[in-house]
Design a protein around this nucleic acid. Structure first.
Lengths: 210, 210
DNA sequence: GTCTATAGGTTGATAGAC
DNA sequence: GTCTATCAACCTATAGAC
């Protein structure tokens, strides 16, 4: 019956913000408890260790993202267009809060060592497979390997944008305005859909004998 | 007259490898001196601090990469095709040693805080501007802002691939074979060129009065 | 559940002998 | 230039009072 933002949630919120801002290793539990205005020992009481806290922070972000991805995909009907598939994959990430959540998501996607060990099989692999199946239905002539490559490219755009979105207006010299998430999604969908429809280059034939 | 791999170079090589593998914060000077088989105090003798060592490691990678980018661009003649421009931008990064150098390059590109403070103005901004000019000549109808956005997307693909290349054969379930760097460059160039040529969506007109 | 106090270890950096 | 030894600061984690 009490309000939600108790100690445990305050720690998760503070950890999410600081992990995204400075990274997992560079953020100490003291940084987190200072930001959350709770006692240092509370971290080890509510979570068992820093590693478990990292797991909890990430799970709290990834699970609803993947849930919404699949909901959007289902909502697009039995034979969604390529653009609908890409928007379902990208939207839930690019709609995350740019200040706190998106940087952490981008950081996580650029740390394959951490990601693979703890989240790849449980969180990413099933969703990735489902999306690759849908793209295969939308582009039946595109080889499976090419679908995997191009999903890898789309994930790269998404991760990089999540990581740079906060500073992009500066680094682009004001050219890139990302204040409207929907406009960003449309841009990335248009770019990625065109890339997915690019002709597949035949592998070069070696001149040596077989 | 002595051989090149003296203490200073051994430290740079070891730091490059470990920074890429574990990250800047997670790698201690003791990790580096153990890998390089030199004394701990040698780091602070040859470089003044860990931060200066980070600068030196990164400068040693970025400078030749940007030099080769511009050489490739110049070699493509006065009016290079879009594909030639993209290959000049991507090639020198994607041809880096996948085991040691590429992971560090990918990590650097996914750490905007570090990157912007120390390398953006000196290393990235001039090269980026030159490439955007060339793309403007190749695609004169594409708005400047859209060029900036799409270069941002291409950089994302590049950074993500540099970061994941080592594990990609596993995470793709064997679908993505990246043993041939030239084939990877061709794939990314084809995808990105098609994305660059995608039609620009007109901004949606609001239904409210002006 | 929340706090203080502290154990036990690692870090970056330096002083000073050789 | 290279080494040993060491410092002060920081870290995660826990024990135990309340």
């Amino acid at each position: 019956m009490t309000e939600k933002p108790d100690t445990k949630w305050r720690i998760l919120d503070a950890a999410e913000k600081l992990f995204g801002l400075k990274g997992f290793e560079a953020t100490s539990l003291r940084d987190i408890t200072a930001e959350a205005q709770v006692n240092l020992a509370a971290v080890n009481y509510h979570f068992q260790s820093k590693d478990s806290l990292i797991d909890a922070v990430i799970a709290r972000i990834i699970q609803p993202v993947n849930k919404r991805r699949l909901e959007k995909l289902d909502a697009a009907g039995p034979n969604p267009a390529l653009e609908e598939i890409l928007a379902a994959f990208l939207g839930p990430v690019l709609e995350l809060d740019l200040a706190n959540v998106a940087p952490l998501m981008g950081r996580l996607m650029s740390e394959p060592n951490l990601f693979i060990e703890r989240f790849f099989k449980t969180h990413l692999a099933p969703v990735s497979q489902r999306f690759q199946e849908e793209i295969h239905k939308a582009l039946p002539d595109l080889p499976r390997a090419e679908i995997a490559w191009r999903m890898h490219f789309v994930a790269g755009i998404m991760a990089h944008h999540a990581r740079w979105s906060q500073v992009l207006p500066v680094t682009s010299g004001g050219l890139c305005d990302n204040s409207d998430p929907q406009a960003v999604i449309e841009r990335i969908v248009a770019f990625s859909a065109a890339g997915f429809r690019a002709p597949v280059r035949e592998p070069a034939v070696m001149t040596g004998k077989g």
